[in-house]
Simulated assay, not measured.
Amino acid sequence: MKNYMCQTHFLKNTIGLLTFLSVVGCSTAEKTTQPTTVKVEQTPALTIKKFKAYTQKFTNTTTLTQNHATGHIGEYFFTHWKDGGSASLNMQTNGTFNVDWQGGGYNYVGGPGWHYGDENRVIGYRFDSDSGANFITVYGWGYDKNMAKTDPSHLVEYYILQRWSDAYEPSQNGVFGKKFVSNGVEYSTYRTIREEKPSINNTSTFYQYWSKPSQQQPLGVELEIVFADHVKAWADSGWVLPNMNNFDASDDPTYQVMAVEVFNPPADGTASGRVWNATPK
């Protein structure tokens, strides 16, 4: 449940390096630790003009510690966001990453993926460690600027949970959809609503769609998520996912990532793994 705040983006020249830093907040920008061995260049394959941050490409292993950073590391998009506290994202160009956090009263969400959602994408992943993340989940957005803003379906935040803590349970406040099996895993779907909350398109009222497995998915095993199965299951309940490949929203494109989320973590922790595109050629 990423809470967007007003953002400032800037580039800072260093000797022999150009380091992308981006800070969330409405007050004086905090000083941050510089990412490791970062070279920034334009990404020819991307024609993104609205969000300057997304045109940047880090070509080496990068550690992000600032409040907010987005872009590409190798061929993978990443989002890294927190509203305080201490959490870092270390990411390699092949989709390998780890998130480290310290206990405190704040929210963090981040991880690698793609700057757009694709209904036909199969997400391959392996998680090697998880010491208490609230969610490890496929996480993304859909947005249709042509739909009435009074219709919560115009903006959807979705979660396909793989691992979770007991701190938040979507079924408690959600509308149940259906049970279904995808790639050998049984899921239950739920829909919740966020009323006048921060989003990728300012403060909005929008739906959240959830798919939750009957049991937590294991560590150290290569797994695949067939995204189309979840889109179909949501649609079977009348929950339509709007456009997942656009730059129409005010604050972010409709990205799709494998996210680690922690909120008000009671202790230090870490989560690590790798993400890749497993879509059949």
Rank of each mutant, 00 (worst) to 15 (best):
M91L: 15
M91G: 12
Q92Y: 08
Q92T: 14
T93Q: 09
F97A: 05
F97M: 02
D100N: 11
Q102W: 00
Q102F: 00
G104Y: 11
Y106V: 11
Y106L: 12
Y108Q: 08
V109G: 15
P112Q: 12
G113L: 03
G113D: 01
G113K: 04
W114L: 01
W114C: 04
W114D: 03
W114S: 01
H115R: 07
Y116Q: 10
D118P: 02
D118G: 03
D118A: 06
D118R: 12
E119H: 14
N120H: 06
V122F: 09
I123N: 00
I123M: 14
G124H: 07
Y125K: 05
Y125S: 10
R126E: 15
R126F: 02
F127Q: 04
D128M: 11
D128N: 15
S129C: 06
S129A: 12
S129E: 14
D130R: 03
S131T: 15
S131R: 01
A133D: 01
A133T: 07
A133W: 00
N134P: 03
I136N: 05
T137P: 09
T137D: 05
Y139A: 01
G140C: 06
W141A: 02
G142A: 13
G142Q: 11
D144N: 15
K145I: 06
M147I: 11
M147R: 13
T150V: 07
D151P: 13
D151M: 15
P152M: 04
S153W: 04
H154A: 07
H154D: 08
H154F: 09
L155P: 07
L155F: 07
L155S: 08
L155V: 15
V156I: 14
I160Y: 02
L161E: 04
Q162W: 02
R163C: 03
S165C: 04
S165N: 06
D166C: 00
D166K: 04
Y168H: 14
Q172L: 00
N173L: 14
N173V: 13
V175A: 07
F176H: 07
F176E: 06
G177I: 01
K178H: 06
K178L: 10
K178T: 15
K179A: 14
F180L: 00
F180D: 01
S182G: 03
S182L: 02
N183I: 00
G184H: 13
G184F: 13
G184Y: 12
G184W: 08
V185D: 04
Y190R: 09
Y190E: 08
R191H: 00
E195P: 09
E196P: 01
K197C: 00
K197W: 04
P198M: 01
N201G: 09
N201D: 15
F206D: 05
F206R: 10
Q208L: 15
